[in-house]
Simulated scan of single mutants.
Amino acid sequence: MLFHGEVAGIRDVVTFQARTAEDLRKAFEDSVDDYLDFCRNENVEPQKPFSGTLSLRTSPELHQRIAAAAARRSASINQWIVETLERQATADLDHGTTSVR
């Protein structure tokens, strides 16, 4: 019997394991410390979890269309974009889409 975990939200793979739940936190902390030491030794920036903030550039025409679509749903532009991206990301992941558009 073994508890196993992985740091989520980064592309690098940082795993940890322990035989007891009590030891799992220490194993996690040790793995993160090892990862940070590795990054320092290799002179690379450690990856950080996604912030949830995106910067988006588009044409003024598309910006206007997005604003109109959001207004039609009584939503903010941000809310409309988040909902639209969520639907599309879910559809792409559910259908195994691998191409980047």
Score class of each variant (00 low, 15 high):
1 M>G: 10
1 M>V: 05
1 M>T: 06
2 L>M: 05
2 L>R: 10
2 L>F: 07
3 F>P: 02
3 F>K: 02
4 H>Y: 14
5 G>I: 08
6 E>P: 01
7 V>L: 15
8 A>Q: 13
9 G>T: 11
9 G>S: 10
11 R>K: 15
11 R>S: 14
12 D>M: 08
13 V>Q: 06
13 V>S: 07
13 V>G: 07
16 F>T: 02
17 Q>F: 03
18 A>V: 04
18 A>Y: 06
19 R>G: 12
21 A>I: 06
22 E>G: 07
22 E>M: 07
24 L>E: 02
24 L>T: 03
25 R>F: 05
25 R>L: 12
25 R>V: 10
27 A>C: 05
27 A>L: 07
28 F>H: 12
28 F>Y: 13
28 F>E: 12
29 E>T: 05
29 E>I: 00
31 S>Q: 10
33 D>R: 14
34 D>T: 09
34 D>N: 13
35 Y>N: 08
36 L>N: 11
36 L>I: 12
37 D>L: 09
37 D>H: 10
38 F>T: 13
38 F>M: 14
39 C>Q: 10
39 C>H: 10
40 R>A: 14
42 E>C: 02
45 E>A: 11
47 Q>D: 14
50 F>I: 04
50 F>K: 08
51 S>A: 05
51 S>W: 00
52 G>Y: 09
53 T>E: 14
53 T>S: 13
54 L>I: 15
54 L>P: 03
55 S>D: 14
57 R>E: 14
58 T>F: 10
58 T>D: 06
59 S>P: 00
60 P>G: 11
61 E>P: 00
62 L>A: 09
64 Q>A: 12
64 Q>K: 05
65 R>W: 00
66 I>E: 05
69 A>T: 06
69 A>Y: 03
69 A>I: 02
70 A>H: 05
72 R>A: 15
73 R>P: 01
73 R>A: 10
74 S>K: 14
75 A>S: 07
75 A>L: 11
75 A>G: 01
76 S>G: 13
76 S>E: 02
76 S>M: 06
77 I>G: 00
78 N>P: 03
79 Q>K: 11
80 W>H: 07
81 I>K: 00
81 I>E: 02
82 V>L: 03
82 V>N: 03
82 V>K: 02
82 V>W: 00
83 E>S: 07
83 E>H: 07
84 T>C: 01
84 T>E: 01
85 L>V: 13
86 E>K: 11
87 R>M: 07
87 R>P: 04
87 R>N: 12
87 R>D: 11
88 Q>K: 12
88 Q>Y: 09
88 Q>P: 00
89 A>E: 06
91 A>E: 15
92 D>P: 04
92 D>H: 08
94 D>R: 11
95 H>T: 15
95 H>E: 12
96 G>L: 13
96 G>E: 15
98 T>C: 12
99 S>T: 15
99 S>N: 12
100 V>Q: 02
100 V>Y: 01
101 R>G: 08
